[in-house]
Each structure stands twice: as structure tokens, then as C-alpha cells.
């Protein structure tokens, strides 16, 4: 595997984006002061500026990076495992399950903490139901899994609509806003909540990247290479769902990241090799969501839902990539 300059550039991309993101915000703090704080150089900045950088911006930027890593890597892994370029973690019912859980927490229990826990649990439950529904005679065919995902998504979406129908219009607005996805209230406790599942999922998928290459050639070829196809697919699904559920339960539904980033990486580097695509999707995904969140919080005086920005920027970009290069990297 030859390491190209572009790969190195993409791998290093999150670092400057991270630093620039820490300098951006509605509270005016000179970038030099931020850098000084980051380097631990003593200075006479006001305490509030320190709090802005380390308590508000840093956990939020890290949360955006974690979100980018989780959604991109899970998307890349699932696309490879399903051999389908249009799959991401949401197709397994995770987002619909999480949305229903959050709606229960916000609309019925009126508790943000309950919403987070319920969203996480319901995301995992939706995936479990999808997997159980698709499994027949000890096997889990890809088509069944996708279809089961669509069915479970529909069921949870209907349950979500039921909750939205019965609660106060103000609560409905709260749920709808949550569904748009936002890092606006992300703090260190959210980073702590997501770190373990996202970290575990990422490490697992990173370790499986070789085997996923075998799987992306087809089940028969993978079996011929000695890969336990069903076990591998199950592990990839669990790891992807764990990562996506943790992120969705914390910041809401942020769409398109799992599609845009892995495809961009594949098309930019002209390879579907997971040894490159998985780690670089993590880096590009982290940078992409950090930049998207910079726009969300600083482009206007408003707190824009980042999920809207990722969709608005992602969909045309995806179209451009498709028109320009097609899906040749998959062939």
C-alpha cells in the first residue's frame, strides 16, 4: 500500500480545522489568545475567555469531530459490507429508533437526560429488531437486512408520529428541532458519554478493515479466503450501530455525513480499499463536521441546526461527485 501525499494531507486535516474551530465563535477572543491557552503559555486573559474555549468550544468541537468519525466510519464500513454505495448507519433503523426514544424522553417524560438514554437504547433496539427480522435459517442476507431496516424504520417513524401527535405543540417543536441535529448544548459530559461507544466501535472497525476488503468482493470470495462472513457482518453491524446510536442520542440526526465522506475519500483517492478508506473517512469526517458546526454556530447570530447544513452542503456535493466521476471506484 503506497502512501500518497493526498492521503497524508487528509490524515492531518482535522488538526488545523480543530484549532481554527476553537478560534471561531460569537464571543470575541483573539486567535492568538486561543493558541496561547492551547499551548499552556500563561497569560492575563479573563477567566470567562478560558471558560469559553475549554468548557464551551472545545467539548463542542470534539463532539463534532467524534460525530464525524462515527458517522463516516460506520457509513464506510456498512457500504463495504453491504456492497451497496447508498447505505449508511441510518438504514438499519438506528435514526428512526433514536428519534422515537428522544421523542418519548422530550415529549412524555420531559427530560433531556431521559431523551438521551432512551434515544441510545431505542437506536440499539431498532437495530436488534432489524437484524432479528432479517435473520432466516441462520443467515442474514443483505437484501433482507435492508428491507427489514426499511420496515423497522417505518414502524418507529409511525411511533414517532404518534408521540408528536399527542404531545403539546411546543413539545412537538422541541422534538422536531431535536430531529434536525445540533451540537449547541454539547459539553464534556456528552463527550464522555460518546467516547466509549464511538471509541470501541472505531477500534473494532479499524481492526476489521482487512477482512471488510475480503467481504466487499462478495460472500463466496470472502469465504474462500477463510473469512467467517456472517460473524464479520454481525460485528460490523454492531460496531456501526453502537457508534451511530451514541452520536444520534447526543446530538440528534445529522444526515448525509455517512454517505458524503466515505464516497469523497474513495473518489479522491480512487480506491475502495478499506485499509485507506476507514481511517481517512474518520479524519475527513471529523474535519467535515467540525467545519459544518463552525458555520452552524458562527455564520449567523443564530444557532443553525447542523443537520440542515450537512444535508444542504452534502447533497449537491454528492451529486457533483457522481456526475464527475460516477461510481467507477465500486466496479
Amino acid at each position: 500500500m503506497r502512501v500518497r501525499p493526498l492521503s497524508i494531507a487528509l490524515a492531518l486535516l482535522p488538526l488545523p480545522v480543530f484549532i481554527v474551530s476553537l478560534c471561531i465563535g460569537s464571543y470575541p477572543i483573539p486567535p492568538a489568545t486561543v493558541i496561547q491557552m492551547l499551548l499552556g503559555i500563561p497569560g492575563d486573559w479573563p477567566r470567562v475567555e478560558w471558560a469559553i474555549v475549554f468548557r464551551l468550544r472545545m467539548p463542542r468541537v470534539i463532539m463534532a469531530a467524534l460525530g464525524g468519525i462515527a458517522l463516516s466510519v460506520s457509513g464506510a464500513s456498512l457500504q463495504s459490507t453491504f456492497r451497496n454505495p447508498l447505505v449508511d448507519s441510518y438504514i438499519l433503523g438506528v435514526s428512526a429508533g433514536a428519534a422515537f426514544g428522544a421523542a418519548l424522553g422530550l415529549g412524555i417524560l420531559s427530560s433531556m437526560a431521559a431523551a438521551q438514554v432512551l434515544a441510545f437504547c431505542m437506536g440499539l433496539l431498532a437495530f436488534t429488531l432489524t437484524y432479528a427480522a432479517a435473520r432466516t435459517r441462520g443467515e442474514t442476507p443483505v437484501v433482507s437486512l435492508v428491507l427489514a431496516g426499511i420496515i423497522i424504520t417505518a414502524l418507529f417513524s409511525a411511533a414517532l408520529s404518534t408521540v408528536k401527535f399527542f404531545v403539546d405543540p411546543h413539545k412537538t417543536a422541541e422534538i422536531v428541532y431535536w430531529l434536525m441535529g445540533s451540537f449547541s448544548c454539547a459539553g464534556w459530559d456528552d463527550v464522555a458519554w460518546c467516547m466509549l461507544p464511538v471509541g470501541t466501535g472505531f477500534v473494532l472497525l479499524y481492526l476489521l478493515r482487512w477482512r471488510m476488503n475480503a467481504l466487499s468482493m462478495g460472500d463466496e470470495e470472502a469465504k474462500a479466503l477463510g473469512v467467517d462472513v456472517h460473524r464479520l457482518r454481525f460485528l460490523v453491524l454492531v460496531a456501526s450501530t453502537l457508534m451511530a446510536s451514541a452520536i444520534v442520542s447526543t446530538v440528534g440526526i445529522i444526515g448525509w455525513v455517512g454517505l458524503i465522506v466515505p464516497h469523497s475519500v474513495r473518489m479522491a483517492l480512487r480506491t475502495p480499499d478499506n485499509r485507506i478508506v476507514i481511517p481517512l473517512s474518520a479524519c475527513v469526517g471529523a474535519a467535515y463536521l467540525m467545519i459544518a458546526d463552525d458555520f452552524a454556530r458562527a455564520a449567523t447570530g443564530y444557532e443553525l441546526p447542523v443537520g440542515i447544513l450537512t444535508t444542504l452542503s452534502g447533497a449537491p456535493f454528492f451529486l457533483y461527485l457522481l456526475r464527475r466521476k460516477g461510481v467507477r471506484v465500486w466496479s
Binding site: 460569537s26 464571543y27 470575541p28 469559553i52 464551551l56 449547541s184 454556530r297 444557532e303
Partner: peptide, 11 residues
């Protein structure tokens, strides 16, 4: 009603 960045509230 308006949703604003938290650091604006801090400022």
C-alpha cells in the same frame, strides 16, 4: 423565539 449559540449567552 430564537436559538442562539451558548457562548453568545455567556457574552
Amino acid at each position: 423565539y430564537v436559538d442562539v449559540p451558548l457562548e453568545l449567552i455567556v457574552s
